[in-house]
Design a protein around this nucleic acid. Structure first.
Lengths: 221, 221
DNA sequence: CCGCTAATGTACGAACTAGTACGTTAGCTA
DNA sequence: TAGCTAACGTACTAGTTCGTACATTAGCGG
């Protein structure tokens, strides 16, 4: 998160709209991720801020709009991160594995984002659907997948004829589940999916799975 | 869900503890799945019941315990369903594919259960962790997977040396994601993962993926 | 350096919500 | 059929929570 780390002011000003908004968004992200939309408390967000509840309503309008703003920023940060990825110099197999690993790492490093997505799905994606910034935003990763897939399919390395969106879903599924459902999975099966000692194991498992799927010999169909 | 479908009474009695409890659980399941734990309203549950709020506290003690009871019953139903599965007569490849398909179907048919699991994870699995009935319950499917894997690995058909829990996670990931995240995924990528027209496509994709992973030629490692 | 507005703080209210005190009755049992 | 208890209903409360009316000031533009 692009946090406000300085203890007092960012640029010497006592009154700083941008800083206040950023601070509210930081704390709100934590609070919504911690407790869900309805579980989150506006008073609690305000209390953990340098400013007061008044400012939340001044800048964002209300709890609902604040949550939308939190989602918009969180998705924006993901987009930024994905735009960094540079795997086109690799051969298709290595490129896909690398992409899967980056997705894996990314999910692991942003559990709050995963929680926000879970919460938003509980509410039928109503906030991102209403957001002008987030409608059909897609993902930079998708374009990368599209190009790697095309190269792999053309060269005959990839036998599966998946499209980019479906492959993205496949990769995300595993990464998302591992983080989002770690609590129930841990209690029910006695295994911590995000145990650091098992990280490399699951990371390799994901890559193996995706590559195996893409390169498997298919019965002619 | 083992619902109470008759409009008035089940067995002629006006006062029927079992029926009242079952009805409360039915409605509570819907309400919690609809709105999340904090979003759910005890008054709303009561209103949609033949009985009153008083009885919820009489039988379950409180909102928290009611939610736990809802989870216990939901997991119990899953267990029952999984105990039906009979794939041991098939060869390992067919058996795993069948198991994956059953998991796929099951997730699709019980979106409320998926939502409850998402909600419980938002709350750190605190309810199932505290429940005597649900600690380390495991899953009947797990035993089946264990046996199929052993057979497949022994015969040399399966090259991957996954264990049953990890394979279960892999299969569940895809099934869970498809249902749980369909709303955000739909808005962001313009694709409905639970579109009935695409059902067979995704069902086959899951099976292909798992089989490809299990039977891929591995570099000696 | 003066005034105007964006930015901020305080105190409060209206509505909601989990939970309960108290009273009533169905229906089994002896 | 009498009576006892499990099952049920009504009405209420205490506490919480989103949101706002009103008052204040920092600091930029002229």
């Amino acid at each position: 998160m692009t946090s406000v780390d300085e203890p007092a002011q960012t640029n010497g000003r006592l009154r700083d709209a941008a800083r206040t908004q950023a601070e509210i968004l930081d704390v709100a992200t934590q609070e919504f991720a911690r407790a869900g939309y309805d579980g989150a408390r506006v008073d609690e967000i305000a209390a953990r801020t340098r400013t007061t509840k008044r400012m939340i309503y001044y800048y964002f309008g209300g709890k609902e709009q604040l949550f939308t703003a939190v989602l918009e920023r969180a998705y924006g940060l993901i987009r930024e991160a994905e735009q960094q990825l540079d795997v086109e110099h690799l051969d298709p197999v290595a490129a896909i594995r690398r992409l899967a690993e980056l997705t894996f790492d990314h999910h692991e490093q942003h559990p709050d984002f995963i929680r926000l997505v879970s919460i938003e799905n509980i509410h039928g994606a109503q906030h991102i659907a209403a957001s002008a910034k987030l409608g059909r935003i897609g993902s930079p990763a998708l374009e990368v997948i599209r190009r790697i897939l095309a190269a792999g399919q053309e060269s005959g390395l990839f036998t599966a004829d998946v499209d980019a969106v479906d492959l993205h879903a496949m990769i995300s599924s595993f990464c998302f589940f591992r983080v989002a459902n770690r609590h129930t999975f841990g209690v029910l099966f006695g295994r911590d999916l995000v145990d650091p000692a098992q990280r490399a194991h699951y990371r390799a498992m994901l890559g193996d799975m995706v590559i195996a799927y893409l390169t498997a010999e298919r019965a002619a169909d």
